[in-house]
Simulated assay, not measured.
Amino acid sequence: MDQTVSDVLCAIESEDWTAFAKLVHPYVSWTEDGHTTRGRTRVMAMLAGRAHTSGSHTAPPAREYEMRDGQVYQWTA
């Protein structure tokens, strides 16, 4: 697993959205359970909202991912 992908998971777990924003491309495509969310701001809101409502500060690890300019551009869990 790429270090950046590990860092993304750690940022989500610790709710460090500043770090998350630096690791994820502004036009990221984030897919979980067949549902795709596009855009860094929307992905952060989705993940933060899930943590707030369910108490879970985790995201499923990426089965596939694409990097662009050193940031995660596509995440498929």
Rank of each mutant, 00 (worst) to 15 (best):
D69Q: 11
A48D: 01
D33I: 08
E15Q: 14
D2C: 07
H57W: 06
S54M: 11
R42H: 10
S14C: 08
V5E: 03
D33C: 11
L47S: 04
H57M: 15
I12V: 15
Q3M: 15
I12Y: 09
G55I: 10
D33S: 12
C10G: 10
H25N: 11
A21M: 08
Q74C: 09
E66D: 14
W30E: 04
G49L: 10
E32I: 12
T58E: 13
R68Y: 06
T37L: 11
L23G: 00
E64V: 05
A51N: 04
A51T: 08
G49Y: 11
G34F: 07
I12W: 05
E64L: 03
Y65Q: 10
Y73T: 01
H57Q: 15
S14F: 04
S29P: 09
S6C: 08
V24Y: 04
G34N: 02
M46C: 06
D2G: 05
S54Y: 14
A77G: 12
R42W: 15
P26Y: 12
E15S: 09
A21F: 05
A62F: 09
G49A: 13
Q74Y: 09
Y65N: 06
T41A: 12
Q74V: 12
W17V: 02
R40Y: 03
G55K: 13
Q3L: 11
E32P: 05
I12E: 07
D7W: 00
W75Y: 12
P60M: 04
T36E: 12
R40F: 01
D7N: 06
G49D: 14
S29A: 13
Q3K: 11
Y27N: 13
H35V: 10
A11Q: 06
G34I: 04
D7Q: 02
M67L: 13
H57L: 09
A21D: 09
T58C: 00
A62R: 08
L9Q: 14
H52S: 14
V5H: 03
E13D: 13
S54H: 11
M67C: 12
T36P: 01
F20T: 01
C10Y: 13
T18E: 05
E15P: 00
Y27R: 11
A48K: 00
R68M: 06
P26K: 11
Q74I: 06
M67V: 07
C10D: 14
E66L: 06
A21N: 05
G39I: 06
T18M: 05
H35D: 04
S6W: 11
H57G: 14
A19S: 05
A48R: 02
H25S: 12
L23Q: 00
R42C: 09
R68P: 02
G39C: 05
T31V: 10
